[in-house]
């Protein structure tokens, strides 16, 4: 396949997907920043948002955007969501083979040939699953702290705070890794433009990175 030059573009991410991604990303950055500010008492961060009480208000409403954004997207694009869930929860032999070689991203693991992948490679699938679990956990622990803080028992509130904190730490690390691979790593930084800008990616790259998916697209042409 690498011999033959494939011309053309692939629409990888639809407008609504990209809008949701942007919204979720911005909310996540604000939430992460203010959250870090609360946990370690960094006055500078709270002051950016107008003092601790206002920072907390920003954190809570960013949390609403963080929750409502994906829910709206899922309701409006249930088919896209379903295909996404199907893709990220189906692991084939190729996926396990990909995981064994780490997709060629890790310098000291020698690779001959990266196994062909679907729309998302095995690493992205795992990220997708973890992000969904993380979002659910962080949302269901977040709202009680705000809306039920005077109704629930103190021990339950303490659990919410701890689960919220550790989920947030893991999510921040995951998202940093995601950012590095999708925007900085030379092998895959072309993905950045497709999600953040126009949604298109070169067909040639897709053919190389997501061979199975591209074959499917060619079939439907």
């Amino acid at each position: 396949m690498s011999e033959e030059v494939i011309k053309g573009k692939v629409l990888k991410h639809d407008t609504q997907t990209r809008t949701m991604h942007w919204l979720h990303l911005l909310a996540f950055i604000i939430l992460g920043l203010t959250g870090i500010g609360f946990y370690w008492d960094i006055a500078g961060i709270a002051n950016i948002f107008g003092g601790p009480a206002n920072a907390s208000l920003v954190h809570r409403w960013a949390g609403v955007v963080f929750t409502v954004g994906p829910i709206l997207y899922i309701l409006l694009n249930f088919d896209r969501f379903s295909r996404f869930v199907d893709t990220i929860t189906s692991f084939s032999r190729d996926d396990f083979a990909w995981l064994k070689t780490m997709g060629g991203y890790v310098p000291f693991i020698k690779i001959e040939e990266v196994p062909p992948q679907e729309k998302y490679n095995a690493g992205q699938k795992i990220l997708g699953i973890l992000i969904i679990i993380g979002c659910i956990l962080i949302i269901i622990t977040g709202f009680p702290m705000w809306l039920w803080c005077d109704v629930v028992s103190s021990a339950f509130l303490a659990i919410c705070y701890n689960v919220h904190f550790w989920t947030a730490i893991i999510m921040i690390l995951l998202v940093l890794g995601h950012f590095f691979l999708a925007a900085i790593h030379p092998k895959s930084r072309v993905e950045f433009a497709s999600m953040m800008l126009d949604g298109y990616i070169d067909a040639e790259i897709t053919a190389e990175h997501n061979a199975k998916w591209f074959a499917e697209l060619q079939k439907t042409e």
Binding site: D41, P52, A53, A55, S56, L57, M145, C149, L157, Y161
Partner: peptide
């Protein structure tokens, strides 16, 4: 003390509204 996480739980417990501070504020 400084360990306060500003969760605002205590303000609803206090019978005399003696605890000051909004959610997010120590």
């Amino acid at each position: 003390t400084d360990k306060c996480k500003a969760c605002d739980h205590c303000t609803s417990i206090c019978p005399t509204h003696a605890i000051k501070g909004r959610l997010g504020e120590k």
